[in-house]
C-alpha cells in the first residue's frame, strides 16, 4: 500500500489551524481512539505548509501547548515522528506531562493546571505567534477528583481568552447516556456544555455494524454550537489507521 499523505485530502480544511479563541472538540470511544486526529492537528500546526488558498497562508502555523493526562511525551513524539515532524520540547511545543506528575489530580487541583498552561502560553506568545492549547483527557479530572463541571468550564473559558483550544473527551455511551451516578451525570453535562461552545466537533466511534479488517471506525464531523466553522462541511466518513500509522479517510461505500 502506498504511504498516505499526513493529512487525508478529504479533511484538509478541517485540520487547518483553528482560529483564535475557538474551541475544537475531539471525541472518542473505548474501541476508537482520537489520537490519530490529535497528532494530525499537531502536525498541521507545526509544519509550515504552502496553503493553496493565499488567504490561509498567513496563519497556517502555530505553537502548541500540549497538556496530556492519559499519554506520555514519548507517545506523542513517536506519533509526530511517523508524520515527519520532530517534536522537541524546546522549539514550538510545550508539553505538560499530567500523566507522570498527576497535575490537576493532586492538591493544586485545576487552578494549578490553569496557571501552568497560562504560563506556558504566555511564554510561547512572546514572539507574537499564535498558540493552540491542546487538553488531552481533561474529563479525567471530573471523574477522578472533586473537580466540578463548572470549574472545568471556567478553566476552558479562561484559556480561550488566550489561545485556540483543542479538547479530547470520551464519548462512550456509558458515560453519556447512563446518568445514574454523579460521575456519569457530570460527564454528560460537561460534554454537552462544551459541544455547545465548540466551533467544530470531530467524533470517532466504532462501526455500528461490527468490527472490520479494513475499516477502523467512523468519523463524524459536525459544527458545534459556537462560531467559526461556517465554511466547513458537516459529514460522516470512514477511516482506516494502518499499522504504520498512515490514515486513509474515505466516504461510505467508496
Amino acid at each position: 500500500m502506498p504511504s498516505q499523505p499526513p493529512i487525508p485530502p478529504l479533511l484538509s480544511n478541517h485540520f487547518a489551524v483553528p482560529p483564535e479563541s475557538s474551541l475544537t472538540l475531539l471525541t472518542s470511544v473505548l474501541g476508537a481512539s482520537s489520537n490519530w486526529l490529535l497528532v494530525r492537528f499537531l502536525y498541521s500546526a507545526l509544519i509550515s505548509r504552502k496553503a493553496p488558498d493565499a488567504s490561509l497562508a498567513s496563519d497556517n502555523e502555530a505553537k502548541v501547548v500540549l497538556v496530556s493526562w492519559l499519554r506520555d511525551w514519548s507517545f506523542w513524539k513517536e506519533g509526530a515522528k511517523r508524520l515527519g515532524v520532530a517534536l522537541t520540547k524546546s522549539s514550538s511545543v510545550t508539553f505538560l506531562d499530567c500523566l507522570g506528575t498527576g497535575l490537576g489530580l493532586k492538591d493544586g487541583g485545576i487552578e494549578q493546571v490553569e496557571g501552568k498552561v497560562l504560563d506556558a502560553t504566555t511564554e510561547l506568545k512572546n514572539d507574537g505567534s499564535k498558540v493552540i492549547v491542546i487538553l488531552d483527557g481533561i474529563d479525567l479530572l471530573l471523574a477522578a477528583t472533586e473537580t466540578s463541571v463548572g470549574e472545568i468550564l471556567d478553566c476552558v473559558g479562561e484559556l480561550r481568552e488566550h489561545a485556540a483550544i483543542i479538547l479530547t473527551l470520551s464519548a462512550d455511551a456509558p458515560l453519556l447516556h447512563t446518568r445514574h451516578t454523579p460521575l456519569e451525570i457530570n460527564h454528560a453535562s460537561l460534554v454537552m456544555s462544551l459541544s455547545h461552545q465548540a466551533r467544530l466537533v470531530l467524533g470517532v466511534r466504532e462501526l455500528d455494524t461490527g468490527v472490520a479488517r479494513d475499516v477502523s471506525g467512523a468519523l463524524r464531523i459536525g459544527r458545534g454550537g459556537g462560531d467559526g466553522a461556517e465554511g466547513l462541511e458537516e459529514k460522516e466518513l470512514l477511516y482506516f489507521v494502518a499499522g504504520d500509522g498512515g490514515v486513509r479517510v474515505f466516504e461510505r461505500g467508496a
Binding site: 473505548l30 499519554r71 461490527g210 475499516v215
Partner: peptide, 21 residues
C-alpha cells in the same frame, strides 16, 4: 476483544487484533 494494547492507542480498529473482528 474491546481494546488492544498499543494498537488501540494508535487509533487502529479492533479488526487489527489477531481475531480479525
Amino acid at each position: 476483544v474491546l481494546k488492544v494494547p498499543v494498537l488501540s492507542e494508535e487509533g487502529q480498529g479492533l479488526g487489527a487484533s489477531g481475531g480479525g473482528g
